[in-house]
Amino acid sequence: MVEMLSISQLSFSYTDTENNSVMPMSFDLQAERGEILSLIGPSGSGKTSLLNLIAGFNQASDGKILLDDKEIQQFAPAQRPVSMLFQSHNLFPHLDVFTNIALGIRPSLKLSNEEQQAVGEALVTLGLEGFNKRKPGQLSGGQQQRVAIARALVRQHEILLLDEPFAALGPAMRTELIEVLKELVSRRKMIALMVSHQPTDALLASKRTAFIDNGGVTSIQETADLLNNRQRKEILNYLGPK
């Protein structure tokens, strides 16, 4: 058994309702436990679609998603071992921090003592002690994303999908949160896929980075190598001349 996420020939037809065009996609990649694999590439290349396929928000027409050799595609989104973080709207604005996290364990909010403790611990881990009664509106952008990460943490799902989670944050905050994530992912042996538009984020977070273009993975390399790969035209176009 190989402990990894393995995606092969995962196919999907993306229909753009605005101009009625269809874009065929097919993905192949592998990610190991403890790794944050960065996904970069131009807008509309299929990064978010790939995450949606893994999370089960979209259904693939063909292909496999294997976690530790087990197919997860037959599961509904809630049954998949997946947590996803968006750039915004991760939290319900009318619920306080504690409730927002607790929802991750049990939507009915009927938590056992241990589960309540787990929420408390997650708050501590992410430096959010004392914030449990606050509403998201009373938190900074960075704190809001910490709450969202805390929720992912208590869910204890192995796959973490991050869709530009730090795009709205300042450099210091990004660095800080990426460090928090890295530590969590490696300690808990999770597998994380992170979509980002910042090469610096990829450099910081990931040993390896995948470049996605036109509905497929065009290359997976050491992050530094990929960012300096001047031979591939699409990478050059995306990153721009130095």
């Binding site: 999370a55 996803m84 968006f86 915004s88 929802l103 939507p107």
Partner: peptide, 18 residues
Amino acid sequence: IPKQHWKLAQQLGLNSWQ
């Protein structure tokens, strides 16, 4: 209702009432 909230609802397995 934000699109992300529907996704979250799906992921957290919220039932109809929730």
